[in-house]
Design a protein around this nucleic acid. Structure first.
Lengths: 354, 354
DNA sequence: ACACAAAATAAAAACGATTTTATTTCCATT
DNA sequence: AATGGAAATAAAATCGTTTTTATTTTGTGT
């Protein structure tokens, strides 16, 4: 009974239904609903009311076919090759949440495309453009020289990147001031007396990996010191990588006395490594982290971090993409956020010799 | 120069292009490409070849309009109200990754809809059905009595839920055997001599919260003991909640001697709380956790967990949805996973009096 | 009143596919 | 050789919009 009733649900109203109902032609209905100035106000009112009454909702597929627009915003979500030990991409939930907030109220929806690597991302971007799978693209994990950016800039397809490449191209983007953050963290540790500072960094081709190295180097230069390049490690941003970096670095003849971590995943690994070596953070070693998801406060001990609410980045990405899809000038759609320092350990940096 | 060249890109080939090229009618082309048996094999071959040559890709919008299918799988992603202290939904990246793996090779794409609460989820599910935004839905955060399941079961719309409601309805789902996991964890702690065991649980309306309480209770009953219901806390699954639960519970007159945590976020909070009270896990207190993303190994100390790779859940969700959208019987599309125990502390449970 | 714009609406074409219906071609049968 | 039917293909209708073009209505100035 209930099933027949449910399956007997009549087809949803179309623009034709409205035409029959109001007596106007479908052309007029369409124009009225889109707010065209050529249709009389009284007519518009009547049509709007009728649409309201029967709960008319434009059929997205019909619209899409005619206009070529999809009302889809594509998000390229990187998922690194599946490994058991992975705590990876956790921040993407928040990015999606932020984007979703920005798109709320607009007619755009989010489609997520999981990509495994940059090549995959490039293929996907091209497919999205060629097949018209979406009206705009958001992606991250930008390389210093990123083929996706070249491709999309050249084609003029609307996109916003989370991160910047190192080429002097004009395109909409949102980023964190990684150079500055690395500089500030390093400077702080140097001021605290540290000289042997390790930088737990992502892999080199990533644009922000280089930004961080730049900031790291600048801080040493500014202090008239030589940069301990031997203490820069590069790897995926897994917890395991953080732990293994610590274990390796601390058994060297000239071990580091402080660590700068790139995200919370590696931070947790670093703390784990220090813990199993019996080293005490804040007593005989210092750690400064970069904080994605604000969980460093709960690490033991709580870690001093540079914090940037990632949802805000997501929101900005969404806003920028909307503007870009509406034809906005990419020149105007660029924002670089500076994270704020959250001091969590008693600030006794400098009390110990390097 | 390059820009004009790019913008002068000719329109992509349509079925019409192929018709002109091969001399067949568009009807024949369409049938050939869809592999209809009514068209001669030789014709099919010729058409396939031509399609290959010019790189023909069916226009999704045209297809969608005619067939009513969208080739979209909607995923309802819960994002709890934004709070600063949130480490929430981190596992969703992995779920999406798993779903994406399952959908790879199919023509389906993933669209993500962020929802704030169950009501929101219900509205979204209805919109997706009514407006034909997708051909199937995946969602999670199932309540003991979940209106979305009622709605979708009644309508016959394809969906798969991550989690089960408590009504005896037939629908495709994937779940973790929470009752069993809670039972096993509790049993283990009881065998270790614990009597005052705290259960850090999600909020009651969630179906799996009740499952866990059931398992918890069953373990005490099986041991002929009374369940310490006063030690069951309910809250969001944030790190903060874990920490605050510990701080509160341990200052009671009859404090717990062991904790069962519901996910890694709360576990971290619990450890943080224990740490700041100076309690030593494994020495004077025990913790068993449920492990989403396999990061518990890095907590200090490493925590014994029940582990279920969440990506596998995602993959199964995707597979089930594909089958469901192809008309598969929901009766056959049900799977409940039992997490495996990973012992990480020296197993000295039972060495201490309760 | 009358012609003539301007305003308002209607009709028709288009978007790119699928599906239904119609036509042609080819053989086998009588 | 005519006929019937199956096989292969073509033509036309359709999905629900938007957009272009055509028609009708209205208002204005003489």
């Amino acid at each position: 009974m209930a099933e027949t009733e449910a399956s007997a649900r009549r087809t949803p109203p179309t623009i034709k239904t409205l035409a029959d109902l109001t007596g106007y032609s479908i052309a007029t209905i369409s124009k009225a609903l889109r707010g065209s100035p050529v249709v009389a106000q009284a007519t518009k009112d009547a049509i709007f009311k009728a649409a309201q009454d029967i709960g008319y909702q434009a059929n997205a597929r019909g619209m899409a076919l005619r206009t070529g627009k999809t009302y889809q915003a594509a998000v390229l979500m990187p998922v690194t090759a599946v490994r058991d030990y992975e705590w990876d991409g956790v921040e993407y939930t928040q990015i999606l949440s932020g984007i979703s907030q920005a798109l709320e109220g607009s007619d755009y929806r989010i489609s997520v495309h999981v990509i495994r690597d940059t090549q995959d991302g490039c293929d996907m971007a091209r497919r999205i453009m060629d097949q018209g799978l979406a009206d705009g693209i958001i992606f991250s994990g930008i390389l210093a020289d990123d083929p996706r950016i070249d491709l999309l800039v050249e084609s003029g397809f609307p996109f916003v990147s989370l991160g910047r490449c190192r080429k002097p191209l004009v395109y909409a983007h949102v980023d964190i001031d990684n150079e500055w953050a690395a500089f500030a963290a390093t400077e702080r540790l140097i001021a605290g007396g540290h000289r042997r500072i390790a930088l737990i960094n992502p892999q080199r081709p990533l644009s922000y990996a280089m930004d961080r190295i730049d900031g790291f180097t600048r801080a040493f230069s500014a202090a008239g010191l030589e940069t301990p390049t031997d203490l820069i490690t590069e790897g995926d941003l897994s917890t395991r990588f953080g732990r293994e970096s610590v274990l390796e670095l601390l058994q060297r003849p000239e071990p580091p006395t402080a660590f700068i971590c790139i995200n919370e995943s590696t931070t947790l690994g670093v703390l784990s490594g220090l813990g199993s070596l019996g080293r005490q953070v804040g007593a005989d070693i210092d750690v400064i982290a970069y904080d994605d998801i604000n969980v460093s406060a709960y690490f033991t001990p709580p870690v001093t971090t540079f914090y940037q609410p990632i949802e805000v980045l997501g929101r900005t990405l969404g806003q920028f993409l909307l503007q870009r899809m509406a034809g906005g000038d990419p020149q105007m759609l660029r924002q670089v956020f500076r994270p704020t320092l959250i001091e969590r350990q008693p600030d006794n940096l400098g009390a110990r010799p390097a």
